[in-house]
């Protein structure tokens, strides 16, 4: 595979909900290998929908999306095997509530990647240590705090050895004191060179590790710039307004 080719390539994507409402308008965006791209914008701007299109959880009506050279939008592409290579973290964690932490981390490894039980378990233990959750391996998701659940969710995605990670508002459902523990894990991932596409309002995270910031509004990608430029000199009025609102205090 050509290493200079983008890991995620979104080209001229359009998407409608029903007949009338267009959620994505001619969106194009690419994420290179090892790059961290933060996608922000007001609620309803289509950013969550866009990231769900990347691994085909949401279908698009028009345009193409490629991940590591494979076209997600091509009906002949086998989505399960493509998704197994791309980790995703959700706003509401979505751990499997009927499985304990260890089982949550092993199920994909065993059933999708066909790893043996002991290999999966060893991998899970290593990841639990990495996210600081070793002591909780036999608890059920319902017994954990939001921040703990989200760290497990990140570990579950990492257990599949993904080539890229998608984060869909990973801290939006968390109490303020739990946001840092999740962001710390994400920052270390970014610093290790993981390719990441992150939908978030955490501008501190963007400043710290993002390579680029993409600003969306009403289904359009309004800005796609280096982070320095986005924070210091946003070009569009809509981005200026957005920044003034979320950075005012």
């Amino acid at each position: 595979m050509n290493t200079t080719a983008p890991m995620i390539e979104i080209a001229a994507v359009n998407k409608w909900y029903g007949a009338g409402f267009q959620v994505l308008k001619n969106c194009s965006l690419s994420v290179r290998r090892g790059e961290v791209v933060v996608v922000c914008g007001p609620s309803g701007s289509g950013k969550s929908t866009l990231i769900k299109c990347v691994n085909g959880l949401e279908p698009v009506n028009d345009g193409t999306i490629k991940v590591d050279g494979a076209a997600v939008t091509d009906p002949s592409t086998k989505l399960p095997s493509l998704r197994a290579k791309v980790g995703m973290v959700f706003q509401h964690f979505e751990l499997f509530p009927h499985m304990n932490v260890l089982e949550n981390l092993c199920i994909g490894q065993e059933k999708v990647l066909k790893r043996g039980a002991s290999e999966a378990r060893a991998k899970a233990q290593a990841l639990l240590e990495r996210v600081g959750m070793t002591a909780h391996s036999h608890k059920y998701p319902g017994q954990l705090s939001g921040g703990q659940q989200q760290r497990i969710a990140i570990a579950r995605a990492l257990a599949m050895d993904p080539i890229a990670m998608l984060f869909d508002e990973p801290t939006s459902a968390l109490d303020p004191e739990m946001i840092t523990e999740v962001l710390d894990v994400m920052v270390s991932l970014a610093q290790e060179g993981m390719t990441m596409m992150v939908v978030t309002h955490e501008m501190g995270f963007a400043r710290k590790v993002a390579d680029r910031v993409v600003f969306m509004d009403r289904g359009e990608i309004v800005e796609d710039t280096q982070k320095q430029r986005f924070f210091e000199d946003p070009q569009s009025d809509r981005a200026k307004l957005f920044l003034s609102k979320i950075l005012s205090h």
Partner: peptide, 29 residues
Amino acid sequence: PRGQVNAARAIGMTEFQVMRYVVAPQAFR
């Protein structure tokens, strides 16, 4: 919840696996 289906699909499960390991056990309860 729909999010459970998405999470199961996101780790690469086939539709059958999503039903077998994630949806059916929760539905049964």
